[in-house]
Computed example of a mutant assay.
Amino acid sequence: MNSAPQDGKLTFDQCWELLAASVVGRLALIVDGHPEIFPVNFVIEHRSIVFRTAAGTKLWQSGKETPAAFEIDGYDADSQEAWSVVARGTTAIVDSDVEQAAADALGLEPWEPGDKSHYIRLSLQVLTGRRFKVAAPHIWSTRLTDQRRTSFE
Score class of each variant (00 low, 15 high):
145 T>D: 13
8 G>W: 01
28 A>H: 04
113 P>A: 15
31 V>G: 10
39 P>W: 06
81 E>A: 07
18 L>D: 01
99 E>D: 15
15 C>M: 01
1 M>I: 07
131 R>H: 02
112 E>F: 09
128 T>R: 08
140 W>H: 13
111 W>D: 12
149 R>L: 13
52 R>T: 04
57 T>M: 09
8 G>P: 01
33 G>F: 05
16 W>R: 04
124 L>P: 04
5 P>I: 12
33 G>R: 10
63 G>E: 10
51 F>M: 13
75 Y>H: 05
35 P>Y: 06
81 E>P: 00
110 P>Y: 12
99 E>V: 03
86 V>S: 11
23 V>S: 13
112 E>D: 10
49 I>Q: 01
76 D>M: 03
75 Y>E: 04
153 E>P: 10
113 P>D: 14
29 L>G: 03
18 L>I: 04
4 A>F: 00
130 R>M: 10
99 E>S: 13
18 L>Y: 12
40 V>D: 02
98 V>Q: 15
97 D>W: 08
116 K>S: 10
41 N>C: 04
22 S>V: 06
55 A>I: 02
37 I>W: 08
16 W>S: 11
32 D>H: 13
133 K>D: 00
132 F>S: 00
4 A>I: 00
52 R>E: 06
38 F>P: 03
69 A>I: 05
107 G>N: 06
72 I>H: 09
58 K>G: 06
